[in-house]
Design a protein around this nucleic acid. Structure first.
Lengths: 209, 209
DNA sequence: TTAATAATGATAAATTATTCACAAACAAAT
DNA sequence: ATTTGTTTGTGAATAATTTATCATTATTAA
């Protein structure tokens, strides 16, 4: 269905487009040309057109793209139709922040349940049941493929356990290095790494010119 | 100093190396060959060697790399020596999670202070002073270039205000699309986007073979 | 209905990133 | 000291990605 071989780089831009398109729709815009969109997302018009073309001929020559249509297609491509059942591992500060902001209902599946070793954090939080880590194997929803990792101890062991349970995609909010076998996709989300890249980039910007 | 023109792709791998090297050091490893490191980080040995070579001749032929030396150099390159003064904008759930985990002291600068519109969140939290948003212009440390954005309302306006105060690098924990002028670097850190990429990637993995 | 205008989508060119392959350099062993 | 084995660092080759160019097609106005 999603077929093709969409370049990795393109893939990373899709969420950017979707967000921008939603913003445009909210402000009443109904159609847009690649050139206009370019100035909104800071991506070359020609790159935008190419990125879009992987999902079909979405635009009309001499006219542009209908925003509703684009949003619909991106939603379908980026997960809405998959109804992913996501689990959250770790209900500490970060975990709770993620549970509270569970706005991704109807966007990319939902957090079905969470796990934590600390009894104080167990029970129902923000409408999501939080179980003891010991119950992982029995409580994990069948067909669950994606986990969000927000723990701070026993990290590697927990990852191995998750993979053993059938998890093939991990969003990692941890601050440690994690090793995964081939076939498992790891997306690291780390403030420190982001700042490190930022420091480097902003520095070469200010030093260069 | 950091000079050169390090490829963007390489830049994104540096934090990965640094984390892995720290982990190796903790487990007592003192030197490593590119081939070994490769199996730890899932990056080809030759890519590793080339990435490292941008920072000088860090290894010894027939011997490998000394981990201490690598860590030292990466620390220097990735921000430790810059003593960045970082501000946090938004002290809600996410903001507090970031404040509590302020382990990036001595790694990439530190959060000097935070700002929030909500009086309940102001005062000192986790050792970091949280001021009212109104005080941004007077309280922002001089020379501050990097801000972490963890607010949920008035986002674009706040960004514009920050840029006006001299911010050139933003780590964005928001869930909305943000527009920045050229010269300002935006690093978006978003669970939803990460999951979207993940859904796409894991799906093409399972459908393909 | 036809011509003019405009923006897409596809192909070609340019750029950027990765991998190959090997000479040079170091360590260890003899 | 010399040889052998090993691994780095880097030019050259390949692959991937981005950008430029342009033919095509839809829209709009005459």
């Amino acid at each position: 269905m999603t077929g093709k071989n969409v370049p990795k780089a393109t893939l990373q831009r899709y969420p950017v487009y979707l967000k921008a398109l939603r913003k445009l729709k909210r402000s009443g815009v109904e159609r847009i040309m690649s050139k206009e969109l370019s100035s909104v997302v800071n991506i070359e018009p020609t790159t935008i057109r190419r990125d879009f073309s992987f999902l079909g001929s979405l635009g009309k020559q001499g006219f542009g793209y209908e925003i509703d249509r684009l949003i619909e297609i991106f939603n379908a491509q980026l997960g809405m139709d998959f109804e992913e059942k996501i689990i959250l591992v770790g209900a500490g500060n970060m975990g709770r922040a993620l549970m509270k902001y569970n706005k991704w209902d109807y966007v990319v599946g939902e957090i079905v349940c969470a796990f934590d070793i600390n009894p104080d954090r167990q029970g129902v939080r923000f409408g999501i049941p939080v179980y003891d880590m010991d119950e992982l194997e029995e409580r994990i929803p069948s067909g669950c493929r994606i986990a969000i990792l927000a723990i701070s101890t026993n990290i590697q062991a927990t990852v191995d356990r998750l993979v053993h349970c059938g998890i093939v995609g991990l969003v990692d909010f941890t601050h440690e290095h994690i090793q995964v076998q081939k076939g498992v996709v790891l997306k690291t989300v780390d403030v420190v790494s982001s700042i490190q890249e930022l420091v480097f980039e902003t520095n070469s910007l200010t030093t260069k010119q």
